[in-house]
Design a binder for these strands. Structure first.
Length: 579
RNA sequence: CGGGCUGUGGCGCAGUUUGGUAGCGCGCUUGAAUGGGGUUCAAGAGGCCCCGCGUUCGAAUCGCGGCAGCCCGACCA
């Protein structure tokens, strides 16, 4: 590719809206261009890199016996109505009507279409197990796209779906896929960790997310350094608080003019936040639900959503509280008949100070089981750094990460709803057990940009670099141009991916662009180098350049690129079989 | 959907407080010099000042109403 003809230029001044380094590079290097919020054009270089990522995905998915297929971007709403997601999913699902007025969706994920396909094609246990995958456009009408390609509304996703007869088979394949996922990210140069996660709208029982750790990540994670527990904030469990066996004391109403509706507020009545019962009122599907937790702890609303089976919960407004007969700041489950969710921290702590549902009054010595009760005791604590690990009790450490992929055990969530059955050995109809596996292609690209750069620009990992060699002339002498032209022709003909800077610009501009665009190898042709019948070779990311004899230069380049690939395998030794 | 901010040549911004012929830098075009880390000089092109309605002799500037974008939260590859 000749830079003089390539559309998508480099820019010196970048929009103030770029928040992360990766986003700035995305714009500075012309990798992608924003059309609308969360909707991007990939420029030539960005698209080349995307294709390389897709190729890695294909190789690894084929490596775990995947079959590539392709499903349409749009689907009839009827399929989504069958699984209940037509109504369960909010406005991030883009809906439209065709000319006949039929409801349609733009697929934000493909479980429905896939399961519909399966129920017509799969009938016998002998066909199982298998995995189908595609690399295809998804559209999610995200409320808030972010940081360039990290969160977009339209994006490419590799989504795979496996089907099994037994749980054991599912579990075994899940592990294989987990390994394949590490290979994908590692081959793209990314160090990732897998964490337990929430299944969200996908349903099912177990899932893991693959996270690239970085302070600019959107997800909050917890790690235990002593037992390797790792989980998304959304699902991090809290080790139960110690049982306090103090005998229950008598209920006693006391006047407390101050309100205590804010956690951690200065203690009064001589008690600390730990000795308070915090009561929150949430609205779910139009109904008010009470939630109680020990005063020093916070509620994790994702956990609560899961328990309530509603992802649109919210705190009740002051008006709603009033309408329900509550007094803001003095909320309490005592004497109330609303549905009540109780955190274990409350059942283990006797004699808590509760609100009195009465302006200006609290109640001393409230006890779960005696003064109020509920069958719904669930962990709803928002874990914070330093809390004990649920497995071993060591303090948890927090970090942030970009989610680049995830894997789910869906179970029979879709096969039952959509009647995707197979006949087993005994001739009985049985729903297939399914797993699904997603990777965001653009998100890998933008994560690479976040991970591989220096002050001068991008430093592409060789495996996903748009081009491998950046060839540039310095100076305008005829012999320099002639030599570069010839090399460009020869190398390109030989299959080497060359980006050729043939522009008549000052050396400073060209060298700075070479750094910014960040191809793994830079080759300079100049009068100075030709004086010794050589070129100048520099590896992006290394400071020193070296002399490269003109004769046999092509072979040296191949050799260097091979070494760069080997460095990745050296870092992740288990990948070595790939070369 | 809540909270904050911003819309002015392709990009980055000033001008808006106090209404009076639309500016700067980068980039772009032409010419000349230069040629190893964003070079210099000269001459140019390019703007429904986000949109609509209003106030006014006169609106980028004031008022009202929209729309779009960004950031912080609730959602996700």
């Amino acid at each position: 590719m000749r830079l003089s003809k390539m559309i998508g230029r480099t820019v010196r001044e970048i929009p103030a809206e770029a928040e992360t380094e990766g986003h700035r590079l995305l714009i500075r290097a012309g990798i992608a261009h924003r059309v609308a919020s969360g909707i991007y054009v990939y420029g030539h270089l960005g698209w080349r890199s995307v294709q390389k990522i897709m190729q890695i995905l294909r190789e690894e998915m084929d490596g775990v016996d995947g079959q590539e297929i392709n499903m349409p971007v749009t689907a009839p709403a009827d399929l989504w109505k069958e699984t209940g997601r037509w109504s369960a999913v909010g406005s991030e699902l883009a809906r439209w009507k065709d000319r006949w007025g039929r409801d349609m969706v733009l697929a934000m994920t493909h479980e429905e279409t896939l399961t519909d396909y399966l129920r017509s094609e799969v009938y016998s246990y002998k066909q199982l197990p298998f995995m189908l995958y595609q690399i295809q456009t998804k559209f999610r009408d995200e409320p808030r796209p972010r940081a360039g390609l990290i969160r977009t509304r339209e994006f490419y996703m590799k989504d795979g779906y496996s089907c099994h007869l037994t749980e054991e088979c599912m579990d075994t394949y899940y592990e294989r896929m987990a390994d394949a996922y590490y290979r994908v990210f590692n081959r793209a140069g990314l160090d990732v960790v897998s964490v337990s996660s929430d299944n969200g709208m996908f349903g099912g029982k177990e899932s893991h997310e693959y996270m690239y750790l970085t302070p600019v990540g959107e997800d909050k994670l917890f790690f235990c350094d002593s037992c390797r527990y790792a989980a998304n904030y959304e699902v991090t469990e809290r080790q139960p608080v110690n049982q306090d066996n103090t005998p229950p004391a008598t209920l006693q109403e006391v006047a407390t003019p101050e309100r205590l509706d804010i956690p951690g507020q200065a203690a009064f009545l001589g008690v600390t936040p730990k000795e308070f019962l915090k009561t929150l009122a949430y609205i779910t599907r139009g109904h008010l639900v009470l939630v109680v937790i020990r005063g020093d702890l916070m509620v994790n609303e994702v956990k609560l959503s899961r328990i309530l089976g509603d992802d649109a919960i919210r705190l009740a407004t002051p008006e709603e509280l009033q309408a329900g007969g509550f007094v803001e700041g003095f909320l309490s489950p005592l004497g109330r008949s609303e549905r009540l969710i109780v955190d274990p921290s409350v059942t283990r702590s006797p004699n808590l100070v509760a609100g009195a549902n009465k302006e200006g009054y609290h109640v001393m010595n409230s006890n779960f089981g005696r003064d109020y009760t509920s069958a719904e005791v669930y962990d709803i604590v928002a874990v914070v750094a330093g809390d004990p690990c649920p497995l071993c009790g060591a303090p948890l450490r927090d970090a942030r990460g970009i989610e680049v992929g995830n894997i789910f055990k869906l179970g029979t969530r879709y096969s039952v709803n959509m009647n995707a059955l197979v006949q087993n050995e005994n001739g009985e109809q049985q729903p297939m057990i399914m797993g699904c596996y997603g990777i965001g292609v653009g998100r890998i690209l933008s994560t690479v940009l976040e991970a591989y750069n220096d002050k001068d620009g991008i430093i592409w990992p060789v495996t996903v670099a748009p081009y491998l060699v950046h060839l540039t002339t310095l100076g305008v002498e005829e012999e320099v141009i002639a030599c570069a032209e010839q090399l460009y022709q020869e190398w390109t003909k030989a299959g080497l991916e060359v980006l050729y800077d043939d522009r008549d610009l000052r050396p400073g501009v060209k060298l700075n662009d070479a750094d910014l665009l960040g191809m793994p190898l830079r080759v300079v042709v100049s009068r100075r180098s030709l004086a010794t019948q050589s070129l100048e070779l520099k590896e992006r990311g290394l400071s020193a350049a070296e002399s490269l004899p003109l004769a046999g230069s092509q072979a040296v380049l191949y050799q260097r690129l091979e070494e760069l690939r080997r460095q990745i395998y050296l870092k992740y030794p288990y990948l070595s079989h790939l070369s």
